[in-house]
Amino acid sequence: MIPVCRFEDLPEGESVRVGTTPPIAVFRTEDGELYAIDDTCTHQDASLSEGWLEGCLVECPLHAASFDLRTGQPTCLPARRPVRTHRVSVDDGTIHVHVAAEEGTAA
């Protein structure tokens, strides 16, 4: 379980990058939901925490592949492989990421 930041420090519609190996991106959607996925796009080398968040989808800032935050699945090209998803919790006002095991949906 990795602490990310205080809940109030991540406003709706924003994201934060956690410097784990590999790095993880945590999003708080406009609806207030929290999601965490691997930060590096499965297409090439771009940070999804810098992407464009719309609903539960994040668009990669380099070539516009889009990923569903709930499942990690790409919804359009050029990405063809999913990113891993991770469970997020808020404990005593702090956001935590529970890093998924390496297998699972790892690309």
């Binding site: 771009a46 940070s47 810098e50 992407g51 464009w52 668009e59 800032p61 380099l62």
Partner: peptide
Amino acid sequence: RPRPFMRARR
């Protein structure tokens, strides 16, 4: 500056 770039591009 990928994020501001994305906003400006949009």
